[in-house]
Design a binder for these strands. Structure first.
Length: 367
DNA sequence: AACACGTGGCC
DNA sequence: TGGCCAAGTGT
């Protein structure tokens, strides 16, 4: 075996990562505490979400709900309003459910064990490892997108890391690397390295504390690893929505508690069928969703929006109420509210743009 | 294993 | 502009 492919020494990597972490780590809000509740909230918010996006949400959330008891007592609508705009709303629903379980079944004390943590809704293998190591100092490994990239490069793993056998190997490597002295710091150092140095595009190997251990760099493969499968193309839909006015109030409906945007409020609407016009679609969707008849007026705006797994072009039409009593047929609740009261409710991003238009704020951009 | 599940930023 | 990304989990 050549010197170039020798397996990197775990002790060397550990030492270099921890030294770099001690000197180069960023001062982030959740790194100023070991309160398991705060660490937990930050880890849930950070799932698939950028740090700069999370920071204001983290402060607002902890300020409003400072303890697991406060979260457990809160209404889900309060939690969703605090989560509004962050996305992946099942995170908020699971956070709330888990808080109630912790208060009821664990007497308000966080489980410290990885296996116990993983029993809570919304806490998977990654988050269990994060809370156990960062908040409780347990020698638990963790693997996120950063760790996959860092370890794929250090150990020059050429296989698709989303394959289960490869994922298993990466977890194994992460476990071998976690020291019993400072597991939280070691875990965070790998994520920090992935975020600041070992980036997806053009990694900055000159500044990398583990460059001498990196097998991918020795073969100039750092830009080609990890080898992830291509993303699939997203389907596209045309959505017709009614902004229905009755006197000075507008009609909103609450989505069912599970699934896409579950528990959030929205303006009634849905997919346009190929055989109907946009205005016909608005009238039909409003009728099917909330059971009233409306006269569809002029189009207020067009909103282009991309969800996690499909794209839409949303056409919002101003409507005038005609007849019938609004009832929750295809939703969880309906409500007539004045425009100025709309910000009390949690709306998904695409609806938020309509709301901004109605409030006569300047939306991010008009079509 | 594969897919549902958000959003905003970047190039 | 469209594709890719960012501290994953549940089914």
């Amino acid at each position: 075996m050549s010197k170039n492919s020798k397996t990197p020494k775990a002790e060397t990597i550990r030492g270099n990562l921890l030294h770099w972490w001690d000197t180069g780590r960023r001062d982030l809000p959740w790194r100023r505490t070991k309160d398991p509740y705060a660490v937990w909230v930050s880890e849930i918010m950070l799932q698939q979400t950028r740090i700069d996006t999370v920071i204001p949400y983290y402060h607002r959330f902890l300020n409003r709900l400072p303890t697991v008891e406060a979260l457990a007592k809160a209404k889900i609508d309060t939690v969703l309003k605090l989560w509004e705009g962050l996305g992946y709303y099942s995170r908020a629903r699971n956070l709330h459910k888990a808080a109630r379980l912790i208060v009821r079944q664990y007497a308000g004390r966080f489980p410290r064990d990885v296996k116990e943590l993983q029993k809570l809704p919304g806490i998977g293998r990654y988050t269990a490892g994060a809370v156990a190591s960062i908040a409780f100092g347990r020698p638990a490994p963790l693997v996120d997108g950063n760790v996959i990239r860092v370890l794929s490069r250090i150990y020059c793993i050429r296989e698709d890391p989303t394959r289960s056998a490869v994922t298993k190997r990466i977890w194994q490597l992460a476990e071998e690397l976690v020291c019993h002295k400072r597991p939280g710091d070691l875990n965070q150092s790998m994520m920090e390295l992935g975020a600041l140095i070992c980036k997806p595009l053009s990694p900055d190997c000159r500044r990398c504390p583990v460059r001498t251990s990196c097998l991918a760099r020795k073969q100039n493969l750092q830009n080609d690893l990890p080898r992830l499968p291509k993303a699939k193309k997203l389907p596209h839909y045309t959505i017709a929505v009614g902004i229905v006015f009755k006197n000075e109030k507008v009609l909103i409906d609450k989505r069912k508690p599970e699934g896409l945007l579950g528990g959030l409020w929205e303006f009634p609407g849905g997919k346009k069928k190929k055989t109907e016009t946009l205005k016909e679609a608005v009238a039909r969707e409003v009728r099917e969703e909330v059971g009233i008849e409306v006269a569809v007026g002029r189009r207020l705006m067009i909103v282009r929006h991309t969800y996690s797994h499909f794209k839409i072009v949303l056409h919002a039409y101003l409507c005038e109420y005609q007849s019938g009593a609004a009832v929750p047929l295809g939703c969880d609740a309906v409500k007539w509210v004045s425009v100025r009261q709309l910000p009390r409710y949690a709306f998904p991003a695409a609806n938020q743009r309509i709301l901004n238009q109605l409030l006569n704020n300047t939306p991010p951009q008009s079509p």
